[in-house]
Design a binder for these strands. Structure first.
Lengths: 225, 225
DNA sequence: TTGCGGCTCCGCCATTTGGGGGAGACGCAG
DNA sequence: CTGCGTCTCCCCCAAATGGCGGAGCCGCAA
């Protein structure tokens, strides 16, 4: 059974080029083409391809919107490979969120394109090296590098940071005191100096600060669930 | 100028295999090898390679720790390509956080390995398709799909959700009241029912819930900075 | 030695918060 | 029409919070 592919691009020449490359393969069959997003959604429903090569910039409906529409409503396993001329960062995240399984540049070599289609049908994903790099850096770098925020964290003492993370878990002063084996008055002192140093006015803001600054990351608490 | 590569693996045979493949290339030169993490750090400092092929499982110091040590202290542009036998998810994120630029399986073809090294030296990044897939899904899927949490959010009325996100910004009841053009008593009522419905006891926990549940994402607030 | 900062507590006091109850107005489904 | 839920607001009151100043102890550096 050959791999069924649809090609979506507003330029017929580009579309034809990619289709020709893929059709040269014995196990790949281009079953449909479309010139804009709306048409892409239609041919996807009609032909149920395994892989869709999708351009981003298109008249009427763009490729990202079309990808979202197709992936959300598809009742068969379809993979979308985004093809773009440049690699504009803002598109990458949106494309992946839209449900795309790949993101490559149009200057990809024919062999790599064919390999990409096969990779996608095998359940893998594929990104252009520069895109991968961006994704990794976004993923690997701590969200907060804001020097102003970091500076304010640094002004806290070790003990105050302990109190802050306990506070950010929703604990009352008394509960924090028990957890740290100190008196409630001590915790009050710490909380006061935390608020002062961070320029906050209440503990709710302190909780928000703990999350916004990256001191606490979502997923660390169980919410009592 | 050829690409200078170091190969780190505890098995001499594997090391030799990769080194032989790379040395066959005119523009790639294997300048050093190491059998464990500690040695890897040393040879990295001594030879300052452009790319380091790094195994994860090694005696003494593992590849991730070595990667961290090398990347953190390197004063030259070095890229680390993680080579692993399997693709254990827990390692991927750790590796990327450690500063690795690539993550491929050892069953990679010689041509692909060479291409990977070149991609890295060109400033790109490269992941095995299965790894890319994982990274994308992690990146694209909303953090909270916990049905228990979602169920509790659903029990809140629209107005209560409004109050909750305002509350989670660190606003006092009076400030929330002003923002919503209602009386302070009304906000008190809403806050009370929010706490009751969510099974919480104070507003700090409500703030934490807002972040943990994904209702509020870090980066949305400015912390007054 | 002296000083300084951090950690530990104390008291006082105004404000906020959270729980309890209740009530009127509105819209909507049965 | 009659509930039912939501939104609005009120009362009272106990508890927690936050700001203020002050204090003793300890370790470390000048």
């Amino acid at each position: 059974m050959s791999i069924r592919v649809a090609v979506v691009d507003d330029q017929a020449l580009v579309r034809g080029g990619f289709a020709a490359v893929l059709d040269l393969q014995d196990d790949i069959e281009v079953v449909a083409e479309a010139g804009d997003g709306a048409a892409a959604v239609e041919i996807a429903r009609a032909h149920r391809p395994d892989v869709i090569l999708m351009d981003i910039r298109m008249p009427e409906m763009d490729g990202l919107t079309a990808t979202r529409a197709i992936v959300d409503s598809a009742d068969w396993p379809v993979k979308v490979l985004i093809l773009t001329t440049f690699d504009p960062d803002e598109y990458v995240y949106e494309a992946l969120r839209a449900g795309a399984s790949g993101f490559v540049l149009k200057d990809i070599s024919p062999e790599d394109l064919v390999a990409a289609v096969r990779t996608l049908t095998d359940g893998g994903a594929l990104l252009a090296p520069s895109v991968t790099r961006r994704l990794i850096s976004r993923f690997a770098t701590p969200p907060t590098l804001d020097p102003a925020v970091v500076a304010r964290i640094d002004r806290l003492t070790a003990r105050e940071r302990e109190v802050l993370i306990a506070l950010a878990s929703g604990l009352s002063n008394i509960e924090i005191a028990e957890g740290l084996f100190v008196g409630a008055a001590t915790v009050k002192s710490h909380v006061s100096s935390i608020l002062t140093k961070l320029g906050l006015t209440n503990r709710a803001q302190a909780v928000a600060f703990a999350y916004e600054s990256g001191m606490i990351k979502p997923g660390g608490s169980d919410l009592g669930s």
